[in-house]
């Protein structure tokens, strides 16, 4: 699950070398880049998990029962999930205006 495992304790020693620490959003909330939003219609979902598998962003999250939902904080709206969905259960809806 994205974000949950990201709490890493910083070592107490002083490091001279530049060290980056793991944290989600190293580039900020990348959901702000989005122009189209994926909307999942769970009644059409067959739990094939292709969207979860192909998502380059790790923003398609898996529930325990293998249904999926979207992490809109980080989803960049590329549309790969909609393109690979075999049952067309994911629609790309333009951002802004009426939801």
């Amino acid at each position: 699950m994205s974000g949950t495992a990201a709490v890493v304790e910083k070592p107490k020693t002083y490091w001279v070398a530049p060290i980056s620490y793991p944290a989600p959003a190293s580039s900020g909330k990348t959901g702000l880049w989005r122009t189209e939003r994926p909307v999942i219609h769970l009644e059409k979902c067959v739990k094939c998990l292709y969207c979860w598998l192909y998502c380059p962003e790790d923003t398609i999250l898996r529930r325990e029962d293998d249904y999926v939902y979207v992490d809109y904080d980080y989803c960049k709206g590329c549309g790969i999930c909609a393109a690979v969905c075999p049952t067309n259960a994911i629609d790309m809806v333009p951002e802004g205006g009426e939801s």
Binding site: G3, A6, P22, A23, P24, S27, D58, K76, C78
Partner: peptide, 16 residues
């Protein structure tokens, strides 16, 4: 996931 979200790759970059 060991490669977590919020990176700066382009939207739709398959490197992710």
């Amino acid at each position: 996931e060991l490669f977590i979200s919020g990176h700066g790759l382009c939207a739709g970059c398959t490197a992710g």
